[in-house]
């Protein structure tokens, strides 16, 4: 977790510098939970670029704090009213803006999704996560961790975590948003339950109906609420190099509370999914084995949702 409250700035700094070099003066971005939007706004404030952020109207409502943070940082936030009013619709709208303003505008994608070469660009900038895990783990414990675990929506923090470990013996687990349960149809688990599709310029696993229409998704965490997933995750799943599982809304909320009380860390609801699964894994592991969880964001933005979950008014 970095300045801005998530891992997103690893990528926004890199891409914004690229945009500057390309001579673009205006940056657009999509955001789900608002973390990528905040990171983009921070970066643009620093580099003197104009930032406009597309955010699903539904997400604007449930992540109010981040909307205000973006505005404070000088970015303009465009609520998107089309479709399911979440992350996928924000990407649709950003892409429409991009083709309209191509000459002046750089589209700063926030996850390992979209047309080539975005998934690679974002992966490379986020790989610093896995590289640091490697280095720090070696310094503190020696060797490799037994497993690394990260949450997967579009999959940027997970790809950044996994990529440097692909050639190692480390077990890797990606945790998708299981929503109200995989059997209910109300979730965002593209890898666990989707089919191959072509969406947002990538061939990957997609939640879709029998005719190829994209299905509405659900997750307690806006940042995982997306019907596709980075194509390299699909590849790593097919190659059986990474195991992809799901944690439900309820498991994530419980993990959020658990980590807050036991470690004094309020995790974002997105990585709370990873925490939930890691706790399950830990029960089946030996004392001398180790798990590294990527805590990609902090949970201040989600306190209202957890209060609702607990039935408390704040």
């Amino acid at each position: 977790m970095l300045h801005g409250g998530a891992h997103k700035i690893n990528n926004t700094l890199g891409q914004a510098l690229l945009a500057k070099r390309m001579g673009k003066s205006r940056i657009i971005a999509e955001t789900g939970a608002g973390q990528h939007g905040v990171a983009t706004a921070i970066t643009c404030a620093l580099l003197g670029l104009k930032a406009e952020i597309y955010m699903g109207a539904e997400d604007v409502k449930r992540q109010k704090l981040n909307v205000f943070r973006m505005k404070l940082l000088g970015a303009e936030v465009h609520p998107v009213e089309s479709g399911s009013k979440t992350l996928k619709d924000a990407i649709n709208e950003a892409m429409r803006d991009w083709v309209t303003n191509l000459l002046t505008t750089y589209y700063l994608i926030g996850s390992v999704v979209g047309p080539h070469p975005y998934p690679m660009i974002v992966r490379d900038f986020q790989s610093v996560i896995g590289e640091e895990i490697k280095k720090q783990f070696r310094a503190v414990n020696g060797g490799y961790p037994t497993a690394v675990v990260a949450c997967v929506g579009g999959g940027s923090n997970a790809m950044g975590t996994f990529y440097p470990f692909v050639g190692t013996p480390v077990k890797m687990v990606g945790v998708e948003a299981g929503g109200k349960g995989l059997g209910t149809g109300e979730h965002s688990a593209s890898l666990n339950t989707g089919f191959e599709g072509v969406f947002h310029g990538m061939l990957t696993y997609v939640l879709q109906d029998e005719y190829g229409q994209i299905k509405p998704t659900h997750s307690i965490s806006a940042g995982l609420d997306y019907p596709g997933v980075g194509p390299e995750h699909s590849f790593l799943m097919i190659e059986k190099r990474v195991e992809y599982v799901a944690a439900t809304d309820e498991e994530a909320a419980k993990a959020f509370i658990e980590l807050s009380r036991n470690e004094g860390i309020l995790p974002a609801l997105e990585p709370s999914h990873a925490v939930a699964h890691a706790m399950k894994m830990a029960k089946r592991m030996r004392k001398d084995e180790s798990i590294v969880i990527t805590l990609s964001g902090r949970g201040d933005k989600d306190v209202g949702i957890i209060a609702d979950y607990l039935g408390e008014k704040i």
């Binding site: 072509v198 969406f199 997609v206 879709q208 029998e210 005719y211 190829g212 229409q213």
Partner: peptide, 8 residues
């Protein structure tokens, strides 16, 4: 769009 073709 391509996905309906791809799906079929």
């Amino acid at each position: 769009y391509y996905n309906p073709i791809f799906r079929m």
